[in-house]
Simulated assay, not measured.
Amino acid sequence: MLSNIGVPGLILIIILALIIFGPKKLPELGRAAGQTLREFKRSTQGLIEDEKETIVEAVKLEKENETIAEAVKLENEPKSN
């Protein structure tokens, strides 16, 4: 998306930002945007880690259920004399 802007478009955006917000307010806005992006990244990483833990738990439970099913199957097999 941003690759289509190009250098002239980027210069135009910077000039408009300076006109609208002024040179004193621009660094504050940049810091706020950076903090917002950092927090968003931290949140998404937390969600990804939670999802990974859930998947690992599900795989463990599935393996346990398979082991239990095999044990039950062996118990229910008719014993040959």
Results as ranks from 00 to 15, higher is better:
residue 15 I to K: 12
residue 47 L to P: 00
residue 23 P to E: 09
residue 65 N to I: 06
residue 77 E to S: 05
residue 1 M to F: 05
residue 81 N to K: 12
residue 27 P to A: 08
residue 78 P to V: 10
residue 65 N to K: 10
residue 33 A to M: 14
residue 33 A to H: 11
residue 30 G to Q: 13
residue 35 Q to N: 15
residue 64 E to Q: 15
residue 79 K to G: 03
residue 36 T to M: 13
residue 59 V to S: 01
residue 55 I to P: 00
residue 10 L to S: 11
residue 22 G to N: 01
residue 19 I to V: 10
residue 79 K to S: 06
residue 57 E to Y: 08
residue 4 N to P: 00
residue 8 P to C: 00
residue 79 K to V: 10
residue 15 I to A: 14
residue 75 E to P: 00
residue 62 E to C: 10
residue 2 L to Y: 08
residue 43 S to Y: 11
residue 77 E to K: 08
residue 49 E to L: 08
residue 15 I to H: 09
residue 63 K to Q: 10
residue 57 E to R: 15
residue 67 T to H: 07
residue 73 K to G: 01
residue 35 Q to V: 08
residue 8 P to W: 00
residue 50 D to L: 06
residue 28 E to R: 08
residue 63 K to T: 04
residue 42 R to A: 15
residue 12 L to T: 10
residue 66 E to T: 01
residue 29 L to P: 00
residue 7 V to R: 06
residue 53 E to F: 07
residue 72 V to F: 07
residue 11 I to H: 03
residue 37 L to I: 12
residue 51 E to V: 06
residue 81 N to L: 12
residue 51 E to S: 15
residue 47 L to H: 09
residue 9 G to S: 02
residue 25 K to G: 00
residue 29 L to K: 09
residue 79 K to D: 05
residue 58 A to F: 05
residue 32 A to K: 13
residue 78 P to N: 04
residue 25 K to Y: 02
residue 60 K to C: 02
residue 45 Q to P: 00
residue 57 E to K: 15
residue 54 T to F: 07
residue 23 P to S: 14
residue 34 G to C: 12
residue 5 I to P: 02
residue 64 E to M: 13
residue 13 I to Q: 14
residue 61 L to Y: 01
residue 4 N to W: 03
residue 55 I to D: 03
residue 59 V to N: 02
residue 12 L to Y: 03
residue 47 L to F: 09
residue 21 F to A: 11
residue 38 R to S: 15
residue 48 I to K: 15
residue 41 K to H: 07
residue 48 I to T: 13
residue 20 I to F: 03
residue 76 N to D: 07
residue 50 D to W: 01
residue 42 R to K: 14
residue 72 V to T: 03
residue 67 T to A: 15
residue 71 A to E: 08
residue 48 I to L: 14
residue 2 L to Q: 08
residue 70 E to N: 08
residue 57 E to I: 07
residue 5 I to F: 01
residue 18 L to N: 09
residue 36 T to S: 14
residue 9 G to I: 01
residue 7 V to N: 02
residue 81 N to F: 14
residue 24 K to F: 10
residue 68 I to G: 00
residue 34 G to E: 13
residue 31 R to W: 12
residue 54 T to Y: 08
residue 45 Q to M: 07
residue 36 T to G: 11
residue 4 N to M: 07
residue 20 I to S: 02
residue 78 P to T: 04
residue 29 L to M: 14
residue 34 G to K: 07
residue 81 N to E: 13
residue 32 A to P: 00
residue 51 E to F: 13
residue 64 E to C: 03
residue 6 G to L: 01
residue 41 K to A: 13
residue 37 L to A: 14
residue 39 E to F: 08
residue 22 G to T: 01
residue 43 S to F: 11
residue 56 V to E: 03
residue 46 G to N: 12
residue 44 T to C: 06
residue 15 I to C: 05
residue 76 N to W: 02
residue 24 K to M: 09
residue 81 N to Q: 09
residue 4 N to L: 11
residue 42 R to H: 09
residue 53 E to H: 11
residue 58 A to G: 05
residue 30 G to K: 09
residue 66 E to L: 12
residue 31 R to F: 14
residue 11 I to Y: 03
residue 34 G to L: 14
residue 34 G to Y: 11
residue 10 L to K: 04
residue 41 K to L: 09
residue 42 R to E: 15
residue 81 N to M: 09
residue 60 K to Y: 06
residue 65 N to A: 13
residue 11 I to D: 03
residue 3 S to F: 04
residue 33 A to W: 12
residue 73 K to I: 01
residue 57 E to L: 14
residue 68 I to T: 10
residue 72 V to R: 08
residue 39 E to N: 12
residue 69 A to L: 12
residue 65 N to F: 08
